[in-house]
Design a protein around this nucleic acid. Structure first.
Lengths: 363, 363
DNA sequence: CTGTTAGCGCATTCAG
DNA sequence: CTGAATGCGCTAACAG
């Protein structure tokens, strides 16, 4: 057991100085190491199974090779897809991704950001919906500022945070379009399964949906909005509740796909058919949707690209090896000038919301 | 912008020495810091927004607060569930989880392990199926040995790797039981959608299924085994292929749930009904399964617990704060004595494989 | 109980 | 182009 072999060991074995060994291995900018020495170092490193200590490198360099990703729940398809994109993009830059899960708890989120800050993460990406809570948000922003102060970059995806780079979703716009599409398809009586009114994403989609109906001269009754957890089980509960209320509804908009999935399960269990007895639509278009029966109408967001773009947003365009486009320095994600992008979703109509025949269908 | 505030700054602000500040903040074992000084340090740290540099800590302590998790694809439900468990368990220990994805490429896997080794990860967990390739496996094991040499712990989950702690699945046993259950339900003509024959998990499940049928005096024809990618799309392709071959089959076993999902999609597209025209079963019982129509028969593995247990296996039982059970030192996951556990799965019969009526059903 | 002093492993000045 | 020396921020012996 050679134990931890250090760069010094390699240097000694190669008969060169520490500095030379370091340069030979890293290819120090400008200073290249002579062919013979260089290969001697490389050989020694290989022979000793040398593995550079990333922590030491991080300290010496002042920046680590880790990016942090904070999600609510990695098992949630939304988070999993975004994470997939982030991890893929990070791998291309030789960065590792630390994923942490908040379980929808804002305090936990703050703690995770703090942990990432300690790691001197090169970037921190926050994915998922945020709460409307000024006090908590202030502390979160403070932590994020700490990350930036430590040389890290920050981006939030899936919502907008004022002082931070963000890749928001066109929640309101997407839901609004969806509402109009449903209207056009012939639906007239709607219900919405939403999250808490303090969840920004949920509220935006709800509001957008309302506005879309308003565009058509329709008003969504408040009692047709059921608020629960924005999870699969939340959707199940909400739909059950809706059915219990015996409100006359033709089409239900679940503000997220996972909720729609739960809603569908509830409908099935109660003996309702989709779409004959109830049309159903979601938001996000998670991959699993296409395997449901019937396939669900939704608002498509390219989730994996979202993750990719979030990293790009935080770190600046990926260095493709080729010299940069001579434009601004690759310092996107800085403090001063947060960039706010919005990704619009496209309504994808599937079998869960067919054209509604005038008479009122089979129901 | 106070810039990076260090422990030295805190010490100075509190009017104490570096060591005292460190101890006040960490609660050094044995030596506690006097109440007055202690609170002075804490106050200074808070006021300065001090954030300890985890890299420096890792270097000084010789061990980091990161564990690595290597999966094929984080968007795959199997991986996502396991990751969820690992992340949760890690959070309880104040550890961060670096997730990397191999995209089913063994070389990439080795590179990721190497990266984790550089990070001096406290533990490395490999999840997912392995290939039967001695040369590659040897190099992987060498990397893992490097991790251990650097003080890290290692565990593989989902298969067995000789020299490493493992949390294997009862693949053969589970598939065998499944076969017998299907036989008992009345099915007689089978096909299997498998992965490559070089994938250990796939082979084990296939073999187990074969054995189960053999237990019933039946022999699975070789041409009824279709090998593809062990993904959702692979399942789709395989089922399409199977239908093309026009082999007379009553029940199909897809060696993983995601493959079964793809298979189901193919069946539906071709106008076949599950289970009337074809019964279908998978393996793993991923959460999404219950939302399919019909719900899929599968072999249940508690995936999130798998992740949890994997971390426990690598790191030893979680320190619950209470004094340890005086048993062996918490050094499970060492080099010398790899622990090999097997998690058995339970066959869960659902609507996709109903009792088959003697005549041959509606088909 | 507290302060002093070494390193941890590496990148990087600065000389040569 | 190469080597010697410094310091990154922190913990852990050591002394006092």
């Amino acid at each position: 057991m050679p134990g931890p072999v250090t760069l010094a060991d390699v240097a000694r074995a190669a008969g060169v100085s520490l500095a030379t060994a370091s340069r030979a291995l890293n290819g120090a900018p400008g200073r290249r190491v002579g062919g013979e020495l260089r290969s001697r170092v490389l050989l020694a490193a290989a022979r000793l199974h040398y593995s550079p200590n990333a922590n030491a490198q991080a300290m010496a360099r002042g920046t680590s090779a880790t990016v942090g990703l904070v999600v609510h729940d990695i098992a949630d398809p939304f988070a999993a897809s975004v994470a997939s994109g982030v991890i893929e993009a990070a791998a291309e830059r030789d960065l590792l991704v630390s994923v942490s899960a908040t379980q929808w708890d804002p305090e936990t989120e703050i703690r995770h950001v703090e942990a990432l800050r300690r790691q001197r993460a090169r970037a921190v990406i926050l994915a998922g919906s945020r709460w409307a809570d000024d006090e908590v948000e202030e502390r979160l922003v403070a932590q994020l500022a700490g990350v930036v102060a430590a040389g890290g970059h920050v981006a939030v995806v899936g919502q907008r945070l004022a002082s931070v780079n963000s890749l928001a979703l066109g929640n309101a716009a997407g839901a609004r379009r969806l509402a109009r599409v449903l209207w056009t398809l012939g639906y007239r009586r709607f219900a919405v399964l939403s999250g808490s009114e303090r969840q920004v994403t949920s509220e935006e989609r709800l509001t957008g949906f309302r506005d879309g109906l308003a565009d058509c001269g329709h008003r969504l009754p408040d009692e047709n909005v059921i608020a629960t957890q924005p999870t699969r089980d939340g959707g199940y509960v909400a739909m059950t509740e809706l059915l219990d209320r015996e409100i006359d509804v033709e089409a239900v908009f679940a503000i997220s796909d996972v909720m729609a999935v739960g809603a569908m399960a509830a409908l099935r269990e109660q003996g309702y058919r989709v779409p004959q007895d109830m049309a159903l639509a979601g938001f996000e278009d998670i991959p699993a949707l296409r395997d449901l029966q019937p396939p669900l109408t939704s608002v498509r967001i390219r989730l994996d690209q979202l993750g990719r773009r979030a990293l790009d947003l935080a770190l600046g365009a990926p260095s493709t090896g080729a010299p940069a486009p001579t434009s601004s320095p690759p310092s996107a994600g800085s403090a001063a000038d947060p960039v706010h992008l919005v990704v619009q979703g496209e309504v994808v109509v599937r079998a869960s919301t067919p054209v509604r025949t005038v008479a009122g269908g089979a129901g």
